[in-house]
């Protein structure tokens, strides 16, 4: 049933958010530490487990994929509720700080991704299963 997928998603988000809050309390900050990230990991692992055991029907999967497809519309709604006026009202300090940070961060993406890629090429010889499975292993 579709609701099973939706419920799975909801349980992952709630559990992840709770763990994120808990992590925040443990390290002593007034913020959620990676709750959504933890929820995503849980969902990936749970879906993988359930699929392998044939416990996740196509209908149940639709409950998750619907919300995944609603992601872009939700992001657009999110854009429409941003405090754009405050961002522009912040004056030159805020605007320059924001622009400079984004520029410098963009410049660093290729540098840091390279660290990852070297590791990637190192792993290639370990890929198993012949050509058919290369895509999975990657």
């Amino acid at each position: 049933m579709v609701i099973y997928g939706v419920a799975l998603l909801a349980i992952c988000l709630l559990a992840g958010t709770f763990l994120g809050e808990l992590l925040g309390v443990i390290v002593g900050v007034d913020a959620n530490v990676g709750g959504v990230g933890i929820a995503m990991l849980m969902l990936v692992l749970l879906v993988d487990y359930l699929k392998r055991n044939k416990k996740l029907t196509v209908k149940s999967q639709e409950g998750v994929s619907f919300w995944s497809a609603m992601y872009i519309p939700i992001v657009i709604a999110m854009a429409a509720k941003q405090n754009v006026v405050a961002a522009l009202d912040g004056g030159p300090v805020a605007i320059l700080a924001g622009v400079a940070v984004v520029g410098v961060s963009w410049a660093m993406v290729p540098l840091l991704s390279k660290i990852g890629r070297e590791k990637d090429s190192h792993l290639k010889p370990e890929m198993i299963g012949g050509d058919n499975h290369v895509r999975d292993a990657k």
Partner: peptide
């Protein structure tokens, strides 16, 4: 629709299509 709750819900849902490895 664009608030934190549904945003996080949909972000988690995108992990559905992610590659576990």
């Amino acid at each position: 629709m664009g608030g934190g709750m549904l945003r996080d819900f949909a972000i988690v849902a995108t992990a559905f299509g992610a590659n576990i490895d």
